[in-house]
Simulated assay, not measured.
Amino acid sequence: MTGTGPNIPIIDFGPFMSGFYGDRKLVAERMRKASTDWGFFYLANCGMAADSLTQAFMASRQFFALPLAEKNLVAWQNAESNRGYVGVKRERLDPARPGDLKEAFNLAPEEPGAGVPKNRWPQGHPGFRKVMTHFLDDCINTADRVLEAFALALQQPADFFVRAHDKHHHTLRLLHYPPLPEGFEPADGESRAGAHTDYGSITLLFQDDVGGLEVRTRAGEWLRAVPIPGTVVVNTGDLMHRWTNQIFCSTPHRVNVAPECRHLDRYSIAFFCHPNKDAEIVCISSCVGEHQPALYPPTTAGQHLQEKLTNTYGT
């Protein structure tokens, strides 16, 4: 069942950016409630320049318009790298369902040193690399501010989460959901993106105006997360779920094949904020107590991500 209400919270991040403690604390408390009740919220006034987002979407459309043979020259190769082009149906976000009706391109901050994975940039398109590198930096800056707010909400030092993410082991993912052919009928369980939770700490999701994202409520209803101009969708992932002892929930979501938009191209950009691979994920002290014992054993962020990607791609 899919509905349109109740409403996913919309939070104005401007007061947190202003630097006044009382305002920052109020915003942090709202983010905590939204992350506990929903695991999702819309963030307005996050400080990202509108033209940076516009250029990123334009560059994404240009990449996906390239011939398939050219995109396959930079194809995704393995979970260790997790970079490059992912073809339609190559990925199964819900392992029990058919491959997703989408294509994607993954990139990440590039680290110096021999043997370190590098981005698989398409040759002959230097503008694409420049735009995406700039947008990736914007996403990192925004995510760090969100992580500061989460730390305040959980009574931790301001840099608690930022320090655990300072090696920038993040992934930026461009997504294209091609229009479905006239008369196309999805196979059993087939969708644009199967139901799943995200793997890392937080995700920043930028949508075009087509829509299709659906979020599962605590009651089990699928609710449409309609695009709201000037906002970014923020959700908490599996590692934040573990870190906070389920205080911040990792909520299942999907991209459905809605009848009214099945003939349209849909584009989105997701920034998956992931802790340093060697970061130990242990329940935060303020999230455990006499009547709230730790529910998960310690793990490392790298081990967790490797397991999740292996399940997704079957490699």
Rank of each mutant, 00 (worst) to 15 (best):
F271V: 03
A294R: 15
P298Q: 04
S286F: 07
N311A: 14
L309Y: 06
F271Q: 04
A301Q: 05
A301F: 08
A270N: 07
L305P: 09
N276I: 06
A301G: 01
T300R: 13
L295G: 03
L295Y: 11
K308P: 03
D278P: 10
T312W: 05
C287Y: 10
I281R: 05
H291Q: 15
H291S: 14
K308A: 00
S285T: 11
C283V: 04
V288W: 09
S285Y: 12
I281A: 01
H304S: 02
Y296M: 02
H274D: 03
E280G: 12
F271C: 03
H274K: 14
C283P: 08
Q292H: 15
N311M: 15
H291I: 13
S285W: 11
S268E: 02
A270I: 08
L295W: 12
G302Y: 05
K277C: 08
F272M: 07
G302T: 02
H274F: 12
G302W: 07
H304N: 03
P298R: 13
H291L: 15
V288L: 05
P298H: 07
E307A: 14
E280K: 14
C287T: 03
V288G: 01
A301S: 04
C283H: 09
A279Q: 08
S285M: 12
I269V: 06
L305D: 01
A294K: 15
C287H: 09
G302P: 07
S285D: 04
F271I: 04
P293G: 00
I281V: 04
F272L: 08
T310A: 09
S286M: 06
